[in-house]
Amino acid sequence: MAALAILTKLISLVCVFLLINGAEATPIKKLSIDNVPYLGTLRDALKESTRASSGFLCVATIIHNRVLVTPAVCIYGQRRQDLVVVVGNTFIRGVSPTMKVLAIETWRWHARYRFGEMAYNIGLVFTARDITPKHGVIAYAAINRSKLIPHTECLFLGWSRTSVNSKLMMNPPIAFFAWNTFNIDCYKITSTAGVMCSYVPHMKEFKNKTEDLGNPIICNGKLSGVFLERRGEISTYIDIYSFRKWINGAIYIHFHSATSPLRSICCRWLFVLAISIFFIFS
């Protein structure tokens, strides 16, 4: 068994070497909203009222009717009446006939999240109105519910800044292939559990660009990560698989707690508390 484990590790290292030293440069491709209809953004309402796109804060991904997932840092300390959700728009700058601006009803971030830390940096935004699917414009992204095999080919999606220090967003969204690392290697880089890492071999075209908070990474056709930050050549994400139960629990609580058939307010809150504890600590 030990020999088999060593052999497997050696094979994986060889694969990484070949990818890094022999792979072709990964091209960046420009997309339109019909390619990524689940992409949305969080924006400052006041700034948006003066000039479209001037209030951009973070990318958010639609995963359910009225529900988007984004890093907790994007909503922590904010007031929900100060932000809006924009969906159905290809361009980060300007407007389009398919664009929808939605008020935010509420949001929640993971109970263990602490501002400035990478751990548990995940949040859900609940819109005040329905996010109705529309072919080629709006859709829901399915979340990943199974562990990824290391070096799975994934697709990074979203808008990006033209440089690390630039506030100018690329227009329209972009896509490029990336590969996930071993969980243990990601932990060595981040010292944080529940985080996914990816790398892009020979990405010369990407040196002058950087991802932005909340951009999704899709693996095996499922939303697998939400971008947090780059560390050298490695991109880090909140691992959706690690927080799948928390996501399901938070959605359930939001849509069912207020309409619970339990008559007693006390019993209703005990019910919600029990569900919350289960999904937070499971």
Rank of each mutant, 00 (worst) to 15 (best):
F91T: 11
W107C: 04
Y140V: 02
H110G: 03
E105D: 15
P150M: 08
T162C: 00
N171Q: 11
E205K: 13
T132Y: 03
S198M: 13
K100A: 01
P133T: 02
I149W: 08
N89C: 12
G88I: 01
L155K: 06
S191Y: 12
I138P: 04
K167N: 14
I149R: 12
T90P: 06
T162R: 09
W159Q: 02
T127I: 06
P201W: 11
A111R: 09
N144H: 04
W179G: 03
M203F: 14
T98I: 10
G194P: 05
K147P: 13
S163C: 11
V95W: 06
A119F: 01
A128D: 13
I75T: 08
A139W: 00
R129S: 14
C186L: 13
H202R: 15
P172H: 03
H135Q: 12
T192C: 12
L148Q: 05
S198G: 11
T190Q: 10
F91K: 06
P172M: 06
V195S: 13
V86P: 01
G136W: 00
K188S: 14
L168Q: 13
I75G: 00
L124I: 02
F176W: 07
T190K: 09
I149D: 12
A119H: 06
L83I: 11
N171L: 04
I143H: 07
W109P: 00
N171H: 09
R145A: 09
R79I: 14
C197E: 02
T127E: 11
I189P: 03
S146G: 13
H135E: 10
N144F: 04
N208V: 09
E117K: 12
F126R: 05
S166T: 09
T106F: 03
M169E: 01
S163W: 03
T127A: 10
P172N: 06
D185Y: 13
R80M: 14
K207T: 07
G194T: 08
T162M: 05
I92K: 07
S96L: 11
V87C: 10
R145T: 14
S166G: 11
A103Q: 15
N180K: 01
Y76I: 04
F91P: 00
I122P: 00
S166D: 15
K207H: 08
Q81K: 10
D82W: 12
F206P: 01
A142T: 14
T152I: 10
M203I: 12
R79Q: 15
K204E: 15
W159M: 06
A141K: 09
N180T: 06
D185W: 15
N89M: 04
F182V: 08
A193K: 14
G123P: 01
F182N: 15
Y199P: 03
T106I: 03
M203S: 15
V200G: 06
G77V: 10
I184C: 08
V85G: 02
T162L: 10
F91D: 13
G94I: 04
W159Y: 12
E105I: 05
R145F: 02
H110V: 00
Y113M: 01
A111G: 08
S198A: 15
T132M: 09
K134Q: 15
T90D: 05
G116T: 07
K207Q: 09
M169P: 02
D185R: 04
K167Y: 09
F176P: 05
P172R: 05
W109S: 05
K147A: 14
S96D: 12
Y199N: 05
P133E: 11
I75R: 00
C197W: 02
V195G: 07
G158P: 02
G158N: 02
S146F: 15
